[in-house]
Amino acid sequence: MPSLIEVEGLSASYGHVAALKPVDLRVEEGEFVTVLGPNGAGKTTLLRAISRLVASQGRVSFKGQNISGLSTHRLAKLGIIMVQEGRGLFGEMTVYENLLLGAYNLGSEIEKVEGRFEQVFGLFPRLRERASQVAASMSGGEQQMLAVGRALMAGPKLLMLDEPSLGLAPKVAAEILDTLGELNRNGLGILLVEQKAPLALKLARRVYVLSSGSVRAELPANEIKSHHDLARYYFH
């Protein structure tokens, strides 16, 4: 059975600086995979390269189908959805409008859109309360809930998240990651980029350790017991 997503020799650069050296990575159906690494390791570039938000070289397959040449909006239509670092919300729009934009690909299938709203409001009841509030006026935690909620409105097959815990209180970050765990248990494939290793390792089945744009290790999450283990890979 082909992987949900398989990346072979994916590389990207900013000008002459190679941010991502050829990287191999895969996520199986329903798997929770985490990419760990220090600042500047190329984690964000990896997700952006998969989403074609930056120009990249290499092969990317989705359920066995080569999707290397597809543009960002076509990848989104396939169900490859990314929650960007900094949330990428449309701040002047309301929560409701942001969520509607998440369901953009559903067009005018009202029943499906309503179903997605119910799913998202079930996971994040606070978004229902704040539906008519302008997104920029919400707290950081609520904004992150909205970012994840908006991604779920798209009905993702693979959800990629770039440091969703960034700038959040530990309790709120844990709450959001718990929700991701619940989504994964319901069969959603997740590729998480995170600096806060303890949080991410609780959920992940497999871990890739990225440093200086290269994969330093690929191992089961339960094999990493301490920061010391990680540091060993970071500076390998």
């Binding site: 909006h73 989104a76 959805i81 960007q84 990428g88 449309f90 690909n105 908006r150 798209a154």
Partner: peptide
């Protein structure tokens, strides 16, 4: 980029 990531052409 944010719009494209949601499937908007």
């Amino acid at each position: 980029l944010g719009a494209a990531a949601l499937g908007i052409n």
